[in-house]
Design a protein around this nucleic acid. Structure first.
Lengths: 231, 231
DNA sequence: CGAACATTTGATAGCCTTCAACTTCGGTGG
DNA sequence: CCACCGAAGTTGAAGGCTATCAAATGTTCG
């Protein structure tokens, strides 16, 4: 299931040990989300679908290693990636009984599954669980709100820079990070084509604000300037 | 505070009586959100700010009459409207202690305020409140996810049609509705300019799929066709 | 009635997409 | 170990969709 290359990629993003499912921040206090609900470990190959649009939402997922994209698709194939889920992130929680996005593995990925029914039952008995689940929903909502202004109002340059700063914040180790996703995924996340993403990254590389040891391995050389470019 | 024109506009959207703050759907069951927490009524003039970005999030709001837009702004004035809130909608609930968007009245608007502290205290004691708040967050998240694919991947025509169908669903009375917001607001909601919005609406009107008794008062003449156009 | 705002419509420009070719990289097999 | 192959990435040229700039018309309200 795991090639040597993917293993080495995963060991990078694993560096900060995954947050245990069961903790979530809400305001200033912290709740125990899933005491004793450890869930099942499962692996997915690169590109494999974890769940599809309109499928029953029977599980929630915590990324242990790897990366997951959640997307919406239009009939003609246009795709919008709503979020990338990295180790420690929880995804798949829904309001209704079916998933409203598809989720698939960006690279070989290990997740922990928790039965939705268990979660809902816990949320009806344990107020800490209910509020922790609320915090997770609010965190996703906050991300979506930030992403809407990117998609609606930012230029290609601003989008890419915003993306690079997000990835830097989320997976940089020793000031460097390795992207698990390809240019097409980045484009579908940012509402751009893969070519435009490539051009902007090349342009940033040419200006020296960006170091590239290869297309996926990036070091930001001037975060302050990049922060200003992200608007 | 209320002009005659705005009053008549409000009486239109009021037609379905506002849902009492205190009810929210989650899955198949319904919870009492705020038993005995009635809140304070307050009015805002058209264009008036209800709260600003980074201001303390001391209240949550239910729209009683009128309409509210919640927006994010970039430094150079670019604006993205994340949502329009119509009678019965609840907005202003945040994860942290400050608001992360601005909210202002699209037209003269009446809201019910509930102290955030009361809500959080209730959420720590009453599991129904906690889960109802979660349902509200998940509903907003679902809307944001739907809106992301619109902003990232739909054409101008598809965006406007999607918007018209959303407004038809939310405020049509007798197959007709009156928009509370101007073309610029629609543009800032759809990631377009006001001119593009105007052009697309004119085009739809010219084709006869749309009736316009005036610029704001619209009747959809072929919802099936429009649904196909929205992708 | 007049001023301010809102909407429509036209002409032009520009950003990003599309289409295409080429290059690079990683993995496999001889 | 190296050549080959496909996937991923880069780069160029042309075109299209939407933005921008501009002006006219319509609407509201003091």
């Amino acid at each position: 299931m795991f090639s040597r290359h993917e293993m080495s990629a995963r060991s990078k993003v694993d560096a900060p040990p995954p947050v245990a499912i069961g903790t979530a921040n809400f305001g200033s206090s912290s709740f125990t989300l899933l005491p004793a609900l450890l869930g099942t470990i499962h692996g997915y190959d690169k590109g494999e679908e974890i769940y599809g649009d309109d499928e029953p939402a029977d599980y929630a997922y915590e990324v242990i290693s790897g990366a997951v994209r959640t997307c919406k698709l239009l009939d003609d194939g246009r795709r919008q990636i709503g979020a990338f889920h990295l180790p420690g992130d929880i995804f798949g929680l829904e309001m209704g009984s079916v998933h409203r996005m598809t989720a698939d593995a960006v690279v070989d990925t290990t997740v922990r599954l928790v039965r939705r029914k268990s979660l809902e039952e816990a949320a009806l008995k344990d107020i800490g669980v209910a509020n922790a689940l609320r915090a997770l929903a609010l965190r996703d909502l906050r991300h979506a709100e930030d992403h809407m202004i990117l998609l609606g109002r930012k230029t290609a340059l601003e989008r890419v820079v915003t993306f690079l700063l997000e990835m830097d914040r989320r997976l940089a180790v020793a000031g460097m990070f390795e992207l698990p996703m390809c240019r097409r995924d980045i484009g579908d996340y940012l509402g751009l084509t893969l070519e435009t993403v490539s051009r902007v990254i090349s342009q940033l590389h040419g200006k020296g604000v960006l170091g590239l040891s290869n297309a996926r391995r990036i070091v930001l050389r001037n975060r302050q300037l990049l922060g200003a470019m992200a608007v």
